[in-house]
Nucleic acid binder design. Structure first.
Lengths: 110, 110
DNA sequence: TTGATTTACTAAGGATTGCTTAGTATTTGC
DNA sequence: GCAAATACTAAGCAATCCTTAGTAAATCAA
């Protein structure tokens, strides 16, 4: 219950993708003239992007938008992994955790 | 990559907790005078709360703040379940999904 | 069903925050 | 050290949110 995790997550994911602030902004559809300033303001926590802007950034970085709002590091990592699972596997995992699975342990398809 | 899922998730979680818009706002620390209007604006998607406000609402509803930003329904459910796991179990699950676990299947402690 | 009460909702303006512009500072590679 | 690339910032205009003051709709007891 504190400040937004957006700046930290943005920096993590941008660096992992080896993109500059400006290039990431341009790829996310921000005007070339303001991409550098805006992305820097987001990453330094000076201003917060709206959900649509962050969704476009997420698409470029191949992470789910919700990742940027996640404070717990384990959950943040997990969200990226889940984002790369098939929908059927995501559902299977959810069922298992809800205790509604008949199998004694969770197992993904090979 | 569209409009924010905040209104929808807010309504889901508030109704599950059986709270009125105004009461939820007050419990989250919003001034009594404006709690009703603000919570309604959030739930109808007229305005978007900042992360800190949403974190306080999340605490009242016992869900993680990131839940409100999650578009995928399976992932949204999963985030609530994970939020109620012990940190050790969250980590164990993350390790399993990363393929770094030696055991053939994931298993929580009894 | 009617009236009272609770709950949901809304317009409008003042307050706050974000975006654009026009740069300066810092880092990188030669 | 110099040039180019990258990171960063202040300030004003633009957009969004919060407060106020209510109206509309739903609930429920009589």
């Amino acid at each position: 219950m504190s400040a937004s995790p957006v700046p930290k997550r943005l920096k993590e994911a941008r660096q992992a993708a080896k993109l500059t602030q400006e290039r990431l902004g341009i790829l996310a559809g921000i005007d070339e003239e303001s991409a550098s300033a805006r992305m820097n303001q987001y990453e330094r926590g000076k201003h917060e992007p709206d959900f649509l802007t962050l969704s476009r950034i997420a698409a470029v970085l191949e992470v789910p938008a919700t990742y940027f709002y996640t404070e717990d590091n384990d959950v943040a990592e997990l969200l990226i992994l889940l984002h790369r699972l098939l929908p059927a596997d995501r559902r299977k995992l959810a069922q298992y955790l809800k205790g509604e699975s008949s199998s004694p342990a969770f197992q993904l398809e090979p």
